[in-house]
Measured scan of single mutants.
Amino acid sequence: MLDDRARMEAAKKEKVEQILAEFQLQEEDLKKVMRRMQKEMDRGLRLETHEEASVKMLPTYVRSTPEGSEVGDFLSLDLGGTNFRVMLVKVGEGEEGQWSVKTKHQMYSIPEDAMTGTAEMLFDYISECISDFLDKHQMKHKKLPLGFTFSFPVRHEDIDKGILLNWTKGFKASGAEGNNVVGLLRDAIKRRGDFEMDVVAMVNDTVATMISCYYEDHQCEVGMIVGTGCNACYMEEMQNVELVEGDEGRMCVNTEWGAFGDSGELDEFLLEYDRLVDESSANPGQQLYEKLIGGKYMGELVRLVLLRLVDENLLFHGEASEQLRTRGAFETRFVSQVESDTGDRKQIYNILSTLGLRPSTTDCDIVRRACESVSTRAAHMCSAGLAGVINRMRESRSEDVMRITVGVDGSVYKLHPSFKERFHASVRRLTPSCEITFIESEEGSGRGAALVSAVACKKACMLGQ
């Protein structure tokens, strides 16, 4: 009897593995994704193909990295998701002549009506938060230079001027797309009239992360975010950046690689679950690469896999709870928690219980395998993109072996128990001629924006502006 049951459990697990095998990517698959990513990057950089390229390769006008001589107080704003952060950054000489960066910050959550109302409502709310922060720190009387981390696709015309191309991540505030974001912020500050600010720089969160990590390690020339969304930036040779005049030196390019796949480059790798996630998203047909990796989508992918296993009578005796059938019910943090389970399955059992399920031991094991399959594919897909960037940098610099540091931020990278190990191992397999160091950014977005502002202020002083 026991043997029969054991055989049935083994057969069930084997069927589960057959279904989950769809998520496995072979090294040849990853090399294919990497080569296609490089081709799209090239198209994004070139003037004649930029418009139709899915990977936009947006110039950021960040050319210099901090040298350690900029000092002063800077205000930093960070808008990239449902939370908005205001930070005071003091850049100065530390002990023994070292450079020191001290920060104080406060988080504000953005109400739904500000995210989806008008641009005026959104930026009025942001300036209200700045006003509140300055009151708390008794700094209303000071006109501070301000660095703005704005983590949406922007076409820069200068370091302090950028046109919002399109909202992502659930934002829909009308009247912002096609307009200068810094102008919208300046107008809102003017409307309030109770404080003055000098907006000197606007950067993407990947750029802010790279600059913040450069402060720790001067070989950091790539910034990457794996959180709600997924994106990367890197220092490109100016001669390859056709959208900006000049051939000397390097400029940081914001790849906006989340949109890779929007022209069909990933079609052969998309599964039924991916198509369902895409169809029910706020932007169907867009940001397809990001939807395979980002935390906004990972939990939902797992939920759809679990429903398939229920329908195949391989999980929960073929019956799903009402909660499990509800879109968004299986949160991405559950994926991390399930994979963090120590082996007694308590954590998995508790999560499934909150979803109205009474799982068996085998159910718990199957749910864990589903989570591992989805998150491992995410790590491997992400590795193909980064390997594409790094191999490109090595080739354009004609280096036999390139040493490089990548600064990384984002909740999936930082909080998932195995993502970074799987990701690092896969990147290294795909970049055999590179020695890569990964560092995690601390308060990256805010500190990085302030350091970019410090560079901009120093330049302005040198130019006598």
Rank of each mutant, 00 (worst) to 15 (best):
E256K: 12
S453H: 15
L430H: 09
R358W: 02
R377F: 01
S411Q: 14
M402Q: 09
G147N: 08
D365A: 07
L306R: 00
D73R: 00
L292N: 12
G117Q: 04
G343V: 03
I130E: 08
S100Q: 09
S453Q: 15
K459R: 10
H141I: 02
K90S: 02
R275M: 10
S445E: 14
D247C: 04
V71G: 00
E237L: 07
Y61P: 01
V182E: 15
L144Y: 10
L77S: 05
G227W: 01
E435K: 12
K31W: 05
A173N: 05
N204E: 14
T209V: 03
L2A: 09
K90P: 00
Q26M: 15
E67N: 14
R275D: 13
K346L: 09
I126Y: 15
K172T: 03
G162D: 13
I404N: 10
K296I: 10
D78I: 03
E96K: 13
K90G: 03
L134T: 08
T206Q: 04
G410L: 12
G97R: 05
R368K: 03
V181S: 04
E265V: 06
Q98V: 07
E442C: 13
V91G: 04
M462V: 10
Q337I: 08
G97C: 07
N166C: 13
F419S: 02
Y108H: 07
E290I: 06
M298A: 11
G72E: 00
G193C: 11
P284H: 06
T118L: 06
S127L: 06
R345S: 09
K142H: 10
K420D: 11
C129R: 04
D400M: 02
T103H: 04
S353F: 03
A173Q: 03
E112R: 11
S373C: 08
V401G: 09
A6S: 11
S340M: 05
G117H: 04
V335L: 10
S321M: 08
D400G: 02
E9W: 10
S321T: 12
G178L: 15
Q239T: 14
A379F: 08
F133N: 03
V338D: 00
L276Y: 15
E265C: 03
L25S: 15
Y349C: 02
V277Y: 09
G246L: 02
T332H: 13
L75W: 01
S263K: 13
T116E: 10
G44D: 01
E442R: 05
E421K: 08
E40G: 03
Y349E: 08
R308W: 01
L75V: 03
V374G: 01
G299W: 03
L276M: 06
G295Q: 15
R325G: 10
D363Y: 01
G178E: 07
R368N: 06
K458S: 12
L45W: 02
G147M: 06
T342D: 02
P145I: 00
Q465G: 15
R428P: 13
L122T: 07
F423W: 04
A387Q: 01
T326P: 05
T118W: 11
A454E: 11
M37K: 01
S433L: 12
E319W: 13
F171Y: 06
V277A: 09
G299T: 05
Y234I: 04
T255W: 01
V203S: 00
K161W: 13
W257E: 00
S69I: 09
T326H: 03
F269Y: 04
G97T: 12
V310H: 09
V101D: 00
E279G: 14
K136G: 11
S100M: 15
E312I: 12
R192W: 05
G299R: 02
L314T: 06
G343R: 01
E372Y: 01
L270I: 05
S453G: 15
A114R: 13
A425V: 07
K458T: 15
M57A: 04
G318M: 09
G147F: 01
Q106I: 07
S375T: 03
C364I: 09
Q98M: 09
K13N: 05
L386P: 09
V452F: 09
A259G: 07
D29N: 08
G264K: 11
D311L: 14
C434S: 06
L355Y: 06
L463C: 11
T361C: 03
T228A: 04
K161S: 11
S411R: 08
G229T: 15
A282T: 15
D135G: 03
F260W: 05
E14H: 10
H317V: 12
F195S: 06
R85N: 08
D132A: 03
R155S: 15
V277L: 11
V406K: 00
I211C: 01
P417T: 14
M462S: 14
Q38P: 10
F260Y: 03
V207P: 02
G183D: 06
E245I: 02
L355Q: 05
G162M: 10
P145R: 00
K140C: 05
M381W: 13
L88K: 03
I436C: 12
G299E: 02
A387K: 00
D217H: 10
S433G: 08
K39C: 03
S109D: 12
F133Y: 05
E331Y: 10
A378L: 05
E268V: 03
L324Y: 04
L144Q: 11
S64Q: 15
L386I: 14
D247L: 03
G295V: 13
N166G: 13
E67P: 13
D42P: 10
I130C: 11
S375G: 07
D262I: 10
L357R: 06
R422T: 14
E52F: 14
L77G: 04
A114E: 02
G356M: 08
W99F: 05
G343N: 02
K459E: 11
E268L: 05
P145V: 02
C213M: 04
L45E: 02
T431C: 09
V62D: 00
H380E: 15
P59F: 00
S426T: 11
R369N: 07
S76D: 03
E443V: 07
G117N: 01
F148H: 07
T82D: 07
L301C: 08
K169W: 08
F419E: 01
A449W: 04
M34K: 01
C382V: 08
G448T: 12
G295L: 15
V253H: 00
P111V: 11
R447V: 13
L266S: 07
H218C: 06
L134S: 04
P432D: 15
A384N: 01
R345T: 08
K161G: 10
C457W: 14
F423V: 09
D160F: 06
F423L: 13
S64L: 10
D262M: 12
G410T: 13
T354N: 13
Q18V: 10
A10S: 13
G94Q: 13
F330T: 09
V335C: 08
D73E: 01
A176E: 07
K90T: 05
E96Y: 15
G68E: 04
G68T: 02
A449F: 10
K15C: 14
Q286L: 14
V406T: 04
L315I: 13
D158M: 15
L357Q: 02
